[in-house]
Simulated scan of single mutants.
Amino acid sequence: MTLRIVGGRHRGRLLQAPFDDRLRPTASRAREAAFNILLHGAPAEARALQDAVVLDAFAGTGALGLEALSRGAARATFIEKDRAVLDLLRLNADRLGETARTHIIAGDATRPPPAPQPADIVFLDPPYGEGLVDAALAALSAAGWIAGGTVVMVESAVKDAFVAPAGFVLLDERRYGKAAISFLLFQR
């Protein structure tokens, strides 16, 4: 699988993709569409990418957070629990020269450490079919990663029913093949 940054200053740069089926990186087409929505098509409260602090939970290769850095985010924190995948994530950040603007946490997004500050944008792309979205949103909110005004992009399988939990407002929802991408605004 070829995985590239699709926009911004790192546009076209390759990311190291996994060699097995443990990960399902967000497809380039879906990633490009999601960032276009964040930058141009979303309601005003979701257009906060420039100089944003982002969190890429269930980070995998780091494609979402690294794409955000390429497109103008100030800093990105990545949460990933798979030790082998963490090495891949570190390699990708290093290849793009983004290690100074990244913080990588070896941990579980459903049991995150306390946040140093809330993120402006959270990318949540858990494994499909495991019911982790609600647990991760609750845990990230409780740990201070999500606060009032945080925009959350959730990727889930189209076949998995997704309903925005209490405190979140659904801003937009799109489908790309087997993936559904939902944009939420936290209002608590």
Rank of each mutant, 00 (worst) to 15 (best):
M1H: 13
M1W: 11
T2K: 15
R4F: 10
V6W: 03
V6Q: 02
G8V: 07
G8Y: 09
R11G: 00
R11N: 02
R11L: 04
G12N: 06
R13S: 12
R13D: 01
L14W: 06
A17S: 14
F19A: 14
F19V: 13
D21T: 08
R22P: 00
R22W: 03
R24T: 01
R24H: 00
A27Q: 07
A27G: 12
A27Y: 00
S28N: 15
S28E: 15
R29W: 00
R29S: 02
N36P: 02
L38C: 01
G41C: 00
A42E: 01
A42S: 13
P43R: 07
A44P: 13
E45H: 04
R47C: 06
D51K: 06
V53E: 04
D56R: 01
A59V: 06
L69P: 10
R71S: 02
G72N: 04
G72M: 01
G72V: 04
A74Y: 00
A76Y: 02
A76K: 05
E80L: 09
E80C: 11
K81R: 15
D82F: 03
R83S: 14
R83A: 15
A84F: 12
V85M: 05
V85K: 12
V85S: 08
L86T: 08
R90Q: 15
A93L: 09
R95K: 15
L96E: 08
L96F: 09
L96N: 06
G97E: 08
E98V: 04
T99F: 06
R101Q: 15
T102H: 07
T102P: 11
A106N: 14
A106V: 07
A109I: 06
R111I: 05
P112Q: 14
P114Y: 14
P116H: 14
Q117W: 14
P118S: 15
A119E: 11
V122S: 12
F123L: 11
F123T: 07
L124G: 07
D125T: 11
G129L: 05
E130L: 15
A135P: 02
A139P: 14
L140K: 10
L140C: 12
S141H: 15
S141L: 10
A142L: 12
A143P: 12
W145S: 09
G149A: 13
T150W: 08
V151E: 01
V152E: 03
E155F: 03
E155N: 00
S156G: 08
V158Q: 13
V158C: 08
F162S: 01
A164G: 04
P165W: 10
P165G: 06
A166T: 13
G167A: 08
F168K: 07
L171T: 04
D172A: 14
E173I: 11
E173Y: 00
R174A: 10
Y176L: 09
G177K: 11
K178W: 04
I181W: 03
I181G: 01
L184F: 09
L184Y: 11
F186M: 10
F186T: 06
R188D: 14
